[in-house]
Amino acid sequence: MAISEIQSVAERPEGNELAGRVALVTGGTRGIGAAICRALAGHGASVAAGFSHDRERAEAFRAELAAGGADVTLHRGNVSSAEDCRRTVQEVVDAHGQIDILVNNAGITMDRIVSKMADADWYDVIGVNLSGTFFMSKAALEHMLERGSGRIINISSIIGQTGNVGQANYAASKSGLFGLTMSLAKEAAFSLKRAGRLEAYGAGITVNAVAPGFIETEMLDSVPEKALERIRSEVPLHRLGRPEEVARVVRFLAADASSYITGQVWAINGGQEM
């Protein structure tokens, strides 16, 4: 590839670097997912926002993005269902013609100490947080391999790195994303090479994870203020994170210019796990 071609991959105008790209974001109508959708749309991507319930809220979010000029569609489904994941990916391809970016953001918590954790608490959290990421990635990766390029970004958590009392199911699901991310990254590169489509300086297919710390979203609404004060005291920056700070890293990883970053975990936690 000529130097001019190499430079063109990295020099899309700032603010328009995702123009022509289609991004599917699971759990994309609230919290971190909504911030990710806004960031990707703000840099030119068409956005397919996944959600599982509360259509009224999802429609309001779609209207918000559309009012700003974004091309956005809504897709309802249950990511713990392999069939629903395949259907959703095909639905997005039918609506937009392609999927360039998949952000596996959908996640749930069912917190209890192990001795009181019901079987369903374990299976449901693993089903959404880990199995859902696998099913969505498998369906999207097939499409990306056909096109020879794509980005998969998995939203993990600091709890997957440190564990936490009452969150054995959540910690296991989020820690599992690290191994899944690295395996998918290796398989994507291997498959492109085997097909003779692994270009030295092309956009390629990358798979990465981000591991947010405690972020100011509705998920923390039920946490007592005293507990939040303790969390802030454990963070070197002495504050919680903002959804937009996670979205900024996701948008960076989604860009063509990030093609040499794959199989990595990006911590966004104010230094809390140091």
Rank of each mutant, 00 (worst) to 15 (best):
I153C: 04
I153P: 00
I153V: 10
I155V: 15
I155Q: 04
I155W: 00
S157V: 06
I158F: 03
I159T: 15
G160L: 07
Q161N: 12
Q161T: 13
T162P: 05
T162Q: 14
T162A: 13
G163Y: 04
G163S: 05
N164H: 12
G166D: 01
Q167Y: 02
K174H: 09
K174W: 06
K174S: 07
G176K: 05
G176D: 04
L177Q: 13
G179L: 04
G179S: 04
G179K: 05
L180F: 10
T181N: 02
M182W: 03
M182E: 15
M182A: 11
S183R: 11
S183H: 06
L184E: 10
L184F: 13
A185Y: 05
A185L: 03
K186W: 08
E187L: 13
E187V: 10
E187H: 12
A189W: 00
A189T: 11
F190Q: 09
S191L: 12
S191W: 00
L192A: 07
L192E: 13
K193N: 10
R194D: 13
R194W: 01
A195V: 05
R197D: 11
E199N: 14
E199V: 11
Y201M: 06
Y201G: 03
Y201W: 11
G202S: 03
G202C: 03
G202T: 00
G204D: 09
I205K: 01
T206N: 12
T206Q: 12
N208M: 05
A209N: 09
A209P: 09
A209V: 04
V210M: 06
V210S: 03
A211N: 11
P212A: 04
G213A: 09
F214N: 13
T217F: 00
T217K: 07
T217N: 02
T217S: 03
T217C: 02
E218Q: 15
E218R: 15
M219C: 05
L220I: 12
D221M: 11
S222E: 14
S222R: 15
V223E: 14
P224G: 09
E225H: 03
E225R: 10
K226L: 11
K226V: 14
K226S: 15
K226W: 03
E229V: 03
E229L: 06
E229Q: 14
E229Y: 01
I231F: 04
S233I: 02
E234D: 14
V235E: 07
P236D: 07
P236Q: 06
L237A: 12
H238P: 02
R239K: 08
R239L: 02
L240S: 08
G241S: 07
R242N: 07
P243G: 11
P243M: 10
E245R: 03
E245M: 08
A247F: 00
R248M: 10
V249C: 08
R251F: 01
F252V: 14
L253M: 05
A255L: 09
D256C: 02
A257Y: 00
S258C: 05
S258A: 15
S259N: 15
Y260S: 04
Y260D: 04
Y260C: 03
Y260W: 09
